[in-house]
Design a protein around this nucleic acid. Structure first.
Lengths: 332, 332
DNA sequence: CTCATTTTTGGAACCGGTTCCTTTAAAGTC
DNA sequence: GACTTTAAAGGAACCGGTTCCAAAAATGAG
């Protein structure tokens, strides 16, 4: 069915090693080069990747394990990875872990078995199991979004993000604040982001802060917002992610609370939708796309055996928009 | 480095063909079965996929070509495909075409070369080039979202969607309507959806309808909305996709137009965000996730050589929410 | 023109499995 | 216990490339 290198060799009247050499740029005389050029083209010859990989013992595939396919952050990161990989002749093999830890582990084994050249992992949490699986895989593993000393990591400056946000809302005069976070098992989003925020709040002596927790789901955030509004009526709710903020905004609308005049809301992430809704959401921009590109570049270096700094921190940027009221001018 | 089947054979003192038979459930005595069970486990033996595929001449990979990674429809469809494939022991290899036609073609060649078992393609348009590439690939190709007689297709009932929407807005008393569509090169979204809508409008004698066109981008939709509002001040704008509707809503907000009292807006798609924004967007739900699952099931059958109906039409469902004003009761 | 050197080629082994065919061992029959 | 039948195991070829090494051809030097 498909023409093989032997077919080509036969047609050209040469040995298949010569054809192979021609294909891989080895020493071939001008004459045979031309002949082979013509024949491979006419026969529509396409090398069999398996045979190549079997010998080479590796592929140009980079496995990418994402928690879910339908999240803004994951989509942006994947797009970045894909773009950069493609430019270098590589390819991305996406593995959807469906937000389950065991499936992340399983994915690493599976990808290693498929001899991908490296694995880019976007976990919610890094456990010993992850480290063991990474070790067992025997290929470079790069973490995105979470850091770990044992592996190459690319993280966002979550602490700084929390700090910026804390300072900003203080500056706007808010003194009764709810922080709607996520589980502290999530080192980056759950802990660091909150710690930065707390640090900023330290500078404020007359502040009341209420800490709440939710899952990453919008529906859960809506429920949490109900509780917050009932229990402590803050002037502002700082949400650990844009999605959570979206849920809070929704609850506010349902209750007929106007944003920001009656309730201020902020998020983290900088998802596209936050600039589409009304009022636009004040949030912190995380460079997901750039992180994806950088992750891919780092991975390419790693697979080439080059050195890469173990920890890279990506800068974040405050996005000041419309969802936070300025309480300093009680005018009008 | 990695243990091979020969290593196992040697350790067990049997021929590698016996090990292979053991692994693939051939006839092996109880005694050797037990011995091999122990040895493969202890050695942590994992078969090399390339060697297997080289012989088998195919993989359990299904190539999926998407226009972009960061779209709700693509993400939902991919999730559905992935879920169903995984359940059947297969895997999805995502190829991002970046909304460029040539890259879709290139992707098909590339995937065929990598010996994927089949290709699921989500094109904006099906050209002769697509058909030729599908032919050349020599493997099943399944279209999702667009239909073509030459290939197996899974489409949404765009005509019906347009019809439902047209009837609904008429019923709500709108008589001065703008339809913000997309290029007619897109058979499904550009033509069928609009045709259904037009059909519904035929029943209305005193209607004024203005047709406009935009790209799929929110930014372009905002611009188009500006034009529409300036030129024909309709009571309602029917948008060909939810994203376009989002852009129109944004423009309305910027102009201080209240929705739906001063301007009604509708979309198509049923993206998650449409139920989060305020007011919630009236739209038509397209079963992207289910389509993905069904596409995967069909593909699995096709790769198994089974028959599958050439054209499958997925039902859509009207989602009546808050963004369309009822003009029939000018009371209060 | 001969001999040494370099370039180009061919042959064979190898990558790690699967599968076909043959031989050997075990089991069943009379 | 000898003979047939069936089950289990071994050996070799094959999938389609790459690579190493040796042979052949072309080139250069003297």
């Amino acid at each position: 069915m498909n023409t093989t290198i032997s077919d080509i060799a036969q047609m050209a009247g040469v040995a298949k090693s010569t054809v192979s050499r021609y294909l891989n740029g080895g020493s071939v005389s001008v004459k045979t080069k031309q002949k082979l050029e013509r024949i491979t083209r006419e026969a529509g010859y396409v090398p069999n990747t398996f045979a190549q990989s079997l010998k080479a013992k590796r592929t140009n595939l980079i496995g990418t394990i994402v928690p879910r396919l339908d999240s803004f952050a994951a989509a942006q990161t994947m797009t970045g990875i894909d773009e950069e990989l493609r430019a270098a002749g590589g390819q991305m093999l996406v593995y959807n872990a469906g937000q389950e830890r065991e499936r992340e582990i399983e994915a690493m084994h599976d990808l290693a078995r498929q001899k991908v050249a490296g694995i880019i992992l976007m976990p919610a949490q890094v456990t010993d199991e992850h480290l063991r699986a990474a070790e067992a895989a025997g290929i470079p593993v790069l973490l995105v979004g979470q850091g770990n000393e044992a592996l190459h990591s690319l993280v966002y400056d979550d602490y700084q993000a929390g700090l910026l946000m804390g300072r900003y809302v203080l500056e706007k005069g808010h003194r009764r604040i709810a922080y709607l976070g996520v589980t502290e098992e999530d080192e980056a989003v759950g802990r660091r982001r909150k710690e930065g925020f707390k640090q900023a709040l330290l500078e404020c002596t007359d502040c009341k802060v209420f800490y709440y927790e939710s899952s990453f789901k919008i529906a859960d955030a809506r429920l949490a917002a109900e509780r917050i509004l009932d229990e402590c009526s803050p002037t502002l709710i700082v949400c650990a992610t844009d999605n959570i903020a979206l849920g809070v905004v929704k609850t506010a609308h349902v209750r007929g609370l106007s944003i920001p005049s009656e309730l201020s809301v902020t998020g983290f992430g900088g998802y596209e939708v936050t600039s589409i809704i009304h009022p636009e959401l004040t949030t912190v921009h995380f460079p997901y796309f750039e992180a994806g590109k950088l992750a891919a570049r780092h991975m390419l270096k790693l697979t080439a055996g080059e050195e890469v700094e173990r920890l890279t921190v990506m800068d974040v940027e405050m996005l000041i928009r419309e969802s936070v009221d300025n309480l300093n001018n009680p005018s009008v």
